[in-house]
Amino acid sequence: MSDSDFPFSYHVRRSQRALRMRIVVTQAKVEVVAPTQVSEQRIHQFVQSKQEWIVLTLAKIADSRQHYKNSAPAFYGHGAEIPYQGEMVKLIVRPTRLKRIKIEFSREFIAYIPEALLAGEYSDELKEALIKWMKKNSKLHVEQLVHRHAAKRQLFPRTIIMKTQRSRWGSCGIHNDIHINWLLMLAPLEVMEYVVVHELCHIQIKNHSSYFWALVAEHLPDYQQQRHWLRKHGHRIMMGL
């Protein structure tokens, strides 16, 4: 299991008193309490089986606190701030005679809202339009990143698929199809690049040996910085828009 798969880090505490494995999630950390004889592989598998619950629990903890820097707005309207590529970007609303909401981006998000919608509540429709825009543009960003890195070691994926997931950033299938979570659009572009490179390197090396990490470093010498960012902020990004 790779760190790009887990949007959190965890600590293992061995206990002679423990009869079975359990997971403790707090604001400060995710801790796995395990009997002394349980192997690291079994612990990883256990965390994998519980990762959706862990992500949801971390999200609830974060949501119960004050709004953090990259939080989504409570209402999607003129002047709201939208998390995008590690920053908060202002949302501008303009009327249009079009029948559907149109999203543009140029330093700020510009949402063209049909006049009929402006007369009432349009927050939910605008949110869905932004999500649709981000999904579409995430594919373009990933394709550009693949183009930047793939040729160096002939790491060409068969297909690129953008997915909505709450417990995984990316994966590489046995036939070299790579799946990338579109929610990475909320993270800095360098973080998305790390996940893309991580999955491209799995085309050549299917495990997480030292050879694999050396290949990642060949493409991204500072990958550890982006890996750390995901560990620290990943569960918040998973909360989405």
Rank of each mutant, 00 (worst) to 15 (best):
Tyr223Thr: 02
Lys139Asp: 06
Ile101Gly: 00
Pro157His: 09
Gln37Cys: 08
Gln224Tyr: 10
Gln45Asp: 12
Ala150Thr: 01
Tyr84Gly: 01
Ile101Asn: 05
Gln224Ile: 14
Asn181Lys: 02
Val30Phe: 00
Gln45Arg: 04
Arg94Thr: 10
His67Gln: 15
Leu117Cys: 06
Leu126Trp: 02
Gly173Arg: 00
Leu186Val: 10
Ile174Ser: 14
Leu186Ser: 09
Gly86Met: 10
Gln226Lys: 10
Met185Tyr: 05
Tyr68Ser: 15
Asp177Phe: 01
Arg107Gln: 14
Val24Gly: 05
Asn207Ile: 01
Ser64Glu: 15
Ile43Phe: 09
Lys90Tyr: 07
Gly240Asn: 04
Ile113Gly: 01
Pro188Leu: 08
Val38Trp: 05
Ser9Asn: 14
Glu199His: 05
Arg22Asn: 14
Val146Ile: 12
Leu19Lys: 11
Ser106Cys: 13
Leu117Ser: 01
Ala62Pro: 00
Lys99Met: 10
Gln51Asp: 02
Val195Leu: 09
His179Phe: 12
Ile110Pro: 00
Ser15Arg: 11
Phe105Ser: 10
Asn207Leu: 00
His67Ala: 14
Leu183His: 03
Trp133Gln: 12
Lys69Trp: 13
Glu115Asn: 12
Ala129Gln: 08
Gln51Asn: 01
Val47Leu: 07
Arg148Trp: 10
Gly240Lys: 02
Ser4Gly: 06
Trp213Cys: 04
Gln204Asp: 12
Glu81Phe: 08
Gln66Asn: 14
Glu104Pro: 02
Ser123Val: 00
Ser64Leu: 15
His175Ile: 12
Leu186Arg: 12
Glu143Ile: 04
Glu128Ile: 06
Leu189Glu: 14
Ser49Asn: 03
Met239Phe: 06
Val30Arg: 05
Trp133Ser: 03
His208Ala: 01
Gln85Leu: 09
Met21Thr: 01
Arg107Cys: 05
Arg227Val: 06
Gly77Ala: 12
Val89Ser: 04
Leu186Thr: 06
Met239Cys: 08
Lys50Ala: 15
